[in-house]
Design a binder for these strands. Structure first.
Length: 285
DNA sequence: CGGAGTGTTAGTCG
DNA sequence: CCGACTAACACTCC
């Protein structure tokens, strides 16, 4: 699940919790979830936790960084005595004891707290990188979507891929980073743009609206603590609040929230389930 | 029970 | 270079 607002929420919470703590032990329960040598970070102190695109960066002393990507179903659960903060894909595991069958890596800190990396589908990973390697990793990424991106930049990128749909374009991390399937659909609904609209049809003033919408929407989602998909509520009241503000995502069959008379429809665009209102969001091909 | 679908993205192929 | 498609995996839903 996690897109920019969800990863941002996790990074902020973790930063408050683990900054200054030393890593005492790393237990790797599934080898594929941890790339690199765990010994390099054992004994090192956390300087800060931050986010770039949908990646989480735990920065240690001595030019060491742990880069974490949660992909589809990754979650990080921090256990400090008996209190938990968490982020990522919520499942009923949240009620269970940790570790559980989806726990892939356990980080133990020198104050006795632990960070559990759970990932049902095993798409996510943690990897140890120095600053230079981090630079290489991020070199092809576009700017974060919530940073007032220059409309002319988007227009220029669009000119390079004129046959791309706007949905595919917004999901392309090399163009604009941090947007996933939920927020693309929500942004395009707000903008009244049909997801299959070709980027070659979008004007500069529309690119200006798009960059503004990206910042507004993501900042709002961050303020709500991100989106917890489905009606799941965890035992600690820690679901995000953004799902209460979704207009089209997972709303197929419901009337358009604008009461335009349209019905929210689900189609497939760029290989992804795509939700939109066929009345408000006009086709421009 | 079987097959389709799922929030991400890297890789392959045309 | 671009875009469509698929695989990586485990689980839920119909």
């Amino acid at each position: 699940m996690p897109e920019l607002p969800e990863v941002e929420t996790i990074a902020t919470q973790l930063n408050q919790k683990v900054s200054g703590l030393g890593i005492q032990e790393v237990q790797i329960l599934f080898a594929g979830s941890f790339i690199g040598d765990k010994k390099t970070i054992i004994g090192k102190k956390v300087q800060a936790v931050s986010r770039k695109a949908k990646n989480l960066i735990i920065k240690f002393d001595e030019d060491l960084n742990l880069l974490i990507h949660l992909k589809m179903t990754g979650q990080l659960i921090y256990v400090d005595s008996d209190k938990r903060i968490a982020g990522g894909h919520p499942t009923h595991e949240f009620h269970e004891k940790l570790p559980n069958k989806h726990t892939r890596v356990i980080f133990s800190f020198d104050n006795g707290s632990k960070l559990y990396f759970n990932d049902m589908r095993k798409f996510g990973w943690c990897r140890v990188l120095n600053a230079e390697e981090l630079g290489v990793y991020f070199s092809s990424f576009g700017p974060d979507a919530n940073t007032n991106i220059d409309a002319r930049y988007l227009s220029e990128r669009a000119a390079r891929m004129p046959k791309s749909s706007i949905k595919k374009f917004l999901l392309d991390q090399n163009v604009i980073a941090g947007i996933g399937n939920i927020y693309t659909d929500e942004m395009l609904f707000d903008l009244r743009i049909h997801p299959e609209t070709l980027v070659s049809k979008i004007t500069l003033s529309e690119w200006q609206e798009i960059t503004k919408e990206a910042k507004t929407k993501l900042d709002f989602a961050i303020s709500k603590g991100g989106t917890t998909d489905s009606d799941y509520v965890n035992a600690y009241g820690e679901k995000g609040g953004m799902q209460d503000y979704l207009n089209v995502y997972h709303k197929a069959g419901l009337p358009c929230p604008r009461d335009c008379g349209g019905v929210v429809t689900k189609i497939r665009v760029a290989g992804r389930g795509t939700h939109f209102c066929p009345v408000c969001q006009k086709v421009k091909k």
